[in-house]
């Protein structure tokens, strides 16, 4: 019983660590910025599970709240602003600001 339990939880840990490494590599090398942000959010969620496995629930709470919950939406909002700025610079005569659903 104890031995099988160790094997299963070790498989879980190895899989989790491998996925985290792969996610980190993907988010660094992806050319599409939106994809990189999604990878970042997933990385935050899985990293918080990894902290739980390391018996650090307080760090896991901070990681879930800051890493995945706050930084991801901030990145998404920043991506939008960045694209608008780039598009405006590309045009010679920028048209008037559309007032979209604010």
């Amino acid at each position: 019983m104890g031995f099988e339990m160790t094997i299963i939880i070790t498989c879980f840990d190895i899989l989790l660590a491998g996925t985290l490494l792969w996610l980190a590599w993907q988010l660094l090398r992806s050319a599409n910025i939106f994809k990189a942000i999604i990878f970042f959010i997933s990385f935050g969620l899985l990293m918080s599970i990894a902290w739980v496995r390391m018996h650090a629930p307080d760090v896991a709470l901070a990681e879930a709240a800051i890493g995945a919950g706050l930084t991801g939406p901030l990145f998404l909002a920043a991506l939008r602003r960045m694209e608008r700025k780039q598009r405006k610079e590309r045009r010679i005569n920028p048209p008037e600001e559309r007032n979209e659903n604010g």
Partner: peptide
């Protein structure tokens, strides 16, 4: 509580 925040920001901002 925080899982939906990203989707909301995505729809409203991105």
């Amino acid at each position: 509580l925080l899982a939906t925040l990203a989707t909301m920001t995505f729809v409203r901002r991105t």
